[in-house]
Design a protein around this nucleic acid. Sequence first.
DNA 1: AGCAGGTTCGAACACCGTTCGTATCAAGGT
DNA 2: ACCTTGATACGAACGGTGTTCGAACCTGCT
Lengths: 262, 262
Amino acid sequence: MSVDPRQRRAARHAQPPASPAQQTHRKPPITVARITDAALEIVASEGYDALTMRRVAGVLNTGPASLYAHVVNKADIDELIIGRLCAQLVLPEPDPATWREQILDVCAQIRDQYLRYPGISRAALAMAPTNLDVLSVNERMLAIILAGGIEPQTAAWAIDALLLYVSAYALEISLVALRQAHHDDDWVFGRDELIRRFAALPADQFPQTRRYAAELTSGTGHERFDFTLSLIVDNLTRRRRSGKSRSQEAAANQQIRDGENG
Amino acid sequence: MSVDPRQRRAARHAQPPASPAQQTHRKPPITVARITDAALEIVASEGYDALTMRRVAGVLNTGPASLYAHVVNKADIDELIIGRLCAQLVLPEPDPATWREQILDVCAQIRDQYLRYPGISRAALAMAPTNLDVLSVNERMLAIILAGGIEPQTAAWAIDALLLYVSAYALEISLVALRQAHHDDDWVFGRDELIRRFAALPADQFPQTRRYAAELTSGTGHERFDFTLSLIVDNLTRRRRSGKSRSQEAAANQQIRDGENG
DNA sequence: AGCAGGTTCGAACACCGTTCGTATCAAGGT
DNA sequence: ACCTTGATACGAACGGTGTTCGAACCTGCT
């Protein structure tokens, strides 16, 4: 019935475990799960740029054409690995008392998963928001923020902002890490080299950059990450609905859209 | 002596206009400026994925090998077009009274430039922060935020957060636009289709997504963009250094956060 | 047994970034 | 005038990519 892998993908969710351990034969069959495993293995060890149809097929001891019976596209493989990655997250039950820590924890988990598979966030950014696994993450994040008493519209946009920033942050970190690993030493600069370069800029054109080179290059750990996420989440609490002062909230929303050029 | 295009790139900045209008011959010579023009033309009309060495060479009526006398890499072309794009921004003189509007305006300009050249923000995300033109933008943004009385460390991290978010936002918008343009109609969903899909999700697993499908899919214009940027910039004012006399600036900021502290 | 349909996969297509070697061409030095 | 020199231009090719085609193969069912 399902020759077309598109129909396969449509029916991929909700699969019974089928028969257990029947591949006593020499060559195990190619499955979507094995393709996903191979792809993630490649990305984890060599980065997203090395994720190639031929490389995946090579891990599975076959040719690239064999994959297209199980997978529509390379974009389909991207969707598979992002889905697997989302499924590995541990999503807490929404708790109104600790919703802030909960949402920050989920974001940190996503970041760490992205960093475990360098460059994979590029696939996450390019993926359509149709996938069930990423929708599950969205659902849980929405539930957590709603439990914090934030307005639905604010919560929805906040989730978008958080996920977008997390992806971009992980992508940037991964790219410099991959550049370092590939060129091995130079052509990419460490923090000291970067400060030296900033100090060597023309003084009349880059006064602030020269003066604050240390601040510009700091944030080696995840300080920048924590900074931005706290910025977003802290400001969310100002817009939470409270039974008393609706006027306060109206003022806050007015403040939102007084920015430029609507 | 400068056969090597790397040395060309090093000497690319600060070029005298050289001899004017000497190409009275039939075929104008290939220059870095013409390569940049051709590349931007391609990206503007067909998107970043269509930016290819062969396409650029085709616009210039030559073969791909001819480009490598002027350019090191394709990454070098990426750097050229991002630099050109940054140079086209109009960066205001820092004004302590309107620093908030100024920084939002610069971000909106960057966003619009990114959207004018669909997918180009991928190149911006992947580029090393060494380029002079992007450093100029950084410098000006830093000066603007510092004029607002924000602490240097906070300002530096805020710039990073803003640029990262703007790039990711523009990339996402560009990608869905390109998907719409390529597949022409279906396989990509408009907002109505998306709401319908959200409503069709299993009720026990996606209660919030089903309930707030309208909020999740709203923000068609740049409302999401304005929301997030305001979120970041508004919360910056809370961490400004409480120091010397900054009366007018304090008044402006008081106006901003009038909803707080009664 | 015979058939049918899903699965595997070698070969190929069109395209990509990049390199090599050669042809072209303007200017400089006898 | 010629020859030399050095930079530019570019056809051809290499190895890699995603994807398709068609023929084999195997498996399960009548």
